[in-house]
């Protein structure tokens, strides 16, 4: 099978997993009708599913056509805002509690959006989508800090990892002759960081940490995985999308614990 066929198959698989997650979140919403965390999560996953179905249709029908800004970008931006709202409902606190972390997350988000514009050339979709994504990253950073989900060493790994990923991506764009090699060098650490997030989440589940902390870790893994998906193409993109397929139901599973008596 060609890469394009694989992409279509895995996007279809992702859509199927999202449909399952939507069904699970409906069940959860019936058990916890007043939970804002579950409510926002439910709508975020529906928006993500809408974006995925749109992308699948685009992939099959009009892949060669230029797409300046479309419904899937809108749905993705809405999904980011609703996941941020879900995190806000799960974990209190204010941005003042984590000024440094939030500032660094904002810089990371803005740099990523700038790199996407440079890479893709479509300023509208990445400025609008980038704004929502940067806000989402800031909320993730605040919730991580407020919940104490990461220790000092893990914060350093996250900061260093983010810096390395940004620099390598910049190098990939600036150094055109080395694109084939730089593609792998720039993407491998980013994918490795997703695996680190998943490992941290599994440890949190094994240790029986609070559902809020586990949910925040799962959403942060999703945020990082989305970042990787935005910055890669080809087989690396497929690897990131496969990880995304694993992470999506993991987010729901953490909320299942919230609904337990």
């Amino acid at each position: 099978m060609s890469l394009t066929t694989w992409e279509t198959v895995i996007t279809g698989l992702n859509a199927a997993v999202l449909i399952g997650t939507v069904a699970g979140s409906i069940r959860l919403l019936r058990r916890r009708p007043r939970s804002l965390t579950v409510f926002y999560f439910h709508f975020a996953i529906i928006s993500d599913l809408t974006a995925m179905l749109y992308w699948l249709a685009f992939d099959l029908l009009l892949i060669q056509t230029r797409m300046p800004f479309a419904a899937n970008e809108f749905a993705e931006a809405a999904a980011f805002l609703m996941l941020a709202a879900s995190l806000n409902a799960a974990e209190g606190g204010s941005f003042r509690d984590a000024r440094t972390e939030v500032a660094l997350a904002a810089v990371f988000g803005v740099c990523n959006a700038a790199l996407w514009v440079t890479w893709n050339g479509e300023w509208a979709e990445f400025i609008l989508g980038g704004a929502a994504f940067t806000y989402f990253l800031c909320v993730c950073a605040r919730c991580l800090k407020h919940s104490g989900a990461l220790n000092r060493c893990q914060w350093i790994v996250l900061g260093a990892g983010s810096l390395v990923v940004l620099l390598l991506q910049l190098g990939w764009i600036a150094w055109a002759p080395a694109h084939p090699v730089m593609d792998h060098i720039a993407t491998a650490p980013a994918v490795a960081m997703v695996l680190l997030w998943i490992i941290r989440l599994v440890r949190a589940i094994r240790r029986g940490e609070s559902w809020q902390r586990r949910f925040i870790l799962a959403v942060c893994a999703f945020a990082w995985c989305t970042t990787v998906m935005y910055m890669t193409t080809g087989w690396w993109y497929l690897a990131a999308e496969l990880l995304n397929i694993i992470i999506t139901p993991l987010m729901l599973l953490q909320l299942e614990r919230e609904a337990e008596p």
């Binding site: 709508f43 809408t50 029908l61 809108f74 805002l81 609703m82």
Partner: peptide, 29 residues
């Protein structure tokens, strides 16, 4: 659900936009 915030409104709107966009995309070919 007392969730009529920017995120909630955008979420509801994204459903309508997504459905409309999907329809336009499907009938364009």
């Amino acid at each position: 659900h007392r969730a009529l915030t920017i995120a909630g409104i955008l979420g509801a709107l994204s459903l309508a936009v997504g459905f409309h966009g999907l329809y336009n995309l499907l009938v364009s070919v």
